[in-house]
Each structure stands twice: as structure tokens, then as C-alpha cells.
Amino acid sequence: MQPSAGQDHPHTHARGVHWISTAAALGAVVAAMALVPTADASSGKHTTAAPATPAAPTAPVTAPDPTAATYPLNCPGGVRTDVISRVSGDLDGDGRPETAVVVRCHSDTGTPPSGVYVLHAPAEPGGAPVIAVTLVKPQDNRQIQDFRLEGRTVKATVLGFSSDSVPQCCPDLSRSYSWEWRGDRYVALPGPAGTAA
């Protein structure tokens, strides 16, 4: 969906009144990974079906563990990353759970910018979860509140700054966001912009 001129969005490197104004990166669509058909399915060759055998019960698929993933955060001094919030569910309707997560660099004081990511299960057993898509980039200097899952929709309040003079502790702009899987990608749905409480 293409927002009208003057709308604000949470994917921008500039701070200021239009702190959330990059619709192409977040307000439009965020591409996700597609499934690749198997060789037999794509070749069109007919194969003889083997006799049916009872399927062995399968263990339930667990959601990706966000503490086992590696995130593209440039943390000063190599400090660790902290998982601030997480929600898990079948976000894209493929029958397997994903994990959406809010992550930021560790800090004993202050509030570093957050990134928001969707994780898929590891490609191989025992591997690390894979970042499928970035919903909010930490470089955009945003903070995330009220992170939650409603059905298959990820929701949050994204906080930002009206100018460089606003202290990092106290963002003064606020906008609600929803991210939904539609077709083959996540679509960002911004709510009205306002001021942070």
C-alpha cells in the first residue's frame, strides 16, 4: 500500500518532524523469503506411488529461540544484545511458528535504539534461527513499546524524536504500527502519528 504524501513512517535515518517518513522501506511492503518447489514437483515427471504406510507422529515444531540468533546490531565495545520483547506464532500461515523480537544493545544506563525482526527456524537442526525480515532497523533510532501479537498480526508503538536536541531517554513522537503477512510478504500498516506521553 502506498501512503499519501505527508504521512510518517518508522524507517528513516533522519530525525525531525518527518521522523517516520520512508514509506518505501516500511510503510509499503517488506519482502520475505519464498518457498522453492522440490525437483519432482517442478519437473512435471510422473512417479509411481509407494504403498502407503502409517505416518510416524511428528514432534510439535517449536518457535525459533531469539536468544540463539545473531542480529545486525553494531553495539559499541562489542557488548551483548538484549532481547527486550518477543512474540511467537504462525505469522505467515505456513503451519510453522515464527518469532518476532525486539532487540537492542545492552546498556546499564540509557535506552539504545531497538531493532524489530522476524525469525524463521534454523535451516538445519541445531543451527541458529534465521532473520527472515527486518521490520524496524536500529539505525533509525526508534524505541518500541507495547509489543504484542493479535492473531497473526504483530503490533507495537514506535517512538521517535522530533529533533536531535531531544534526549535519547525521552522520545517525543509516537506512532502505532501493525505488520501483517499478505500474500508473500509483511505489510506495515501505520496508525496515526502523535506525541509520546
Rank of each mutant, 00 (worst) to 15 (best):
S4W: 09
S4F: 10
A5K: 11
H9E: 12
V17K: 14
A24H: 14
A24P: 09
L26I: 15
V29G: 02
A34M: 09
L35N: 11
K45V: 13
T47F: 14
T47W: 06
A50D: 14
A52V: 09
T53P: 00
A55G: 10
P57Q: 13
T58S: 11
V61S: 09
T62I: 14
T62N: 13
T70N: 09
P72Y: 05
L73I: 07
N74T: 07
D82S: 06
G89E: 02
G95A: 04
G95D: 04
V102T: 04
D108L: 14
T109Y: 15
P112Y: 02
P112F: 05
V116E: 04
V116S: 02
Y117E: 12
L119P: 01
A121N: 15
A121Y: 01
G127C: 06
A132N: 15
V133N: 00
T134L: 02
T134N: 03
V136Q: 01
V136N: 02
Q139E: 15
N141A: 13
Q143A: 07
D146Y: 14
F147L: 00
E150W: 07
T157R: 10
F161A: 08
S163N: 06
V166D: 04
C169P: 02
C170N: 12
P171V: 00
P171W: 01
P171I: 04
L173P: 01
S178V: 03
E180C: 07
D184W: 08
D184R: 04
D184F: 10
R185E: 11
R185P: 01
G191I: 08
A197L: 11
